Simulated assay, not measured.
Amino acid sequence: MIVYGIKTCDTVKKALRALEAAGHAPVLRDVRAEPLSAAEIAEFQAAFGDRLINRASTTWRGLSEAERAAPVPELLAAHPTLMKRPVIRGVELTLGWDKAAQAAQGL
């Protein structure tokens, strides 16, 4: 099970703790330290579409209108912290840490 996110993100920390408590062995992939590959970005975009971009983030608010208009792959390649977190590759591929994502991961 791979949890894609940022090690300082509270939501990612919460997800990791819950997954470990449920008996899973999640591995954190810090997308800031190890950016997503083009293939991973394409896979995540195919699964989640524009929801993959966190438009409530500080990073998003700091972008110009021209930068915001860039395609999702370009945005994530240039600004990995724009990714909504976490993306979990476990029982199935999920985005975020809401009740639906928790249920999909067997919690």
Rank of each mutant, 00 (worst) to 15 (best):
P26H: 04
R51S: 14
P86S: 04
L16E: 00
E92Y: 12
I2P: 10
G23L: 11
D10G: 00
G62L: 06
A104I: 13
V3F: 04
W97G: 08
D30T: 06
T11F: 06
E74S: 15
L16R: 05
P35I: 00
W97H: 08
A100W: 12
G62T: 03
E34P: 12
A77Y: 12
Q102N: 04
L75Q: 07
M1G: 08
W60F: 10
K84W: 03
L16H: 06
L82G: 01
R29K: 09
L93T: 07
R61Y: 02
A77G: 15
R32Q: 07
T58A: 11
A66C: 10
A103G: 09
S57D: 04
L107I: 01
A56F: 15
K99S: 15
S64W: 07
P73K: 05
V3C: 00
A100S: 11
L36E: 06
K14G: 03
G106H: 11
G5I: 00
T81N: 09
N54E: 01
R68N: 06
L52Q: 07
C9S: 00
L95Y: 07
L63C: 03
A42E: 12
G106T: 09
A100K: 08
E65N: 12
I6Y: 10
Q45F: 13
A47M: 04
R51I: 13
R55F: 01
L63W: 00
A47G: 10
E65M: 14
K99R: 15
T11A: 02
L75Y: 05
R29Q: 13
A100F: 15
L52A: 01
F44Y: 11
E74K: 15
L19Q: 08
K7M: 10
S37C: 04
A66S: 13
A47Q: 06
R29H: 13
I6F: 01
K7I: 02
V91I: 14
K7H: 05
L75V: 09
E74F: 12
F44R: 02
L93W: 01
R61Q: 08
L19W: 06
I53V: 05
T8E: 05
G5A: 05
Q105R: 07
T81C: 10
Q102D: 10
K84V: 03
A39D: 07
E34K: 15
A25S: 14
A22Q: 04
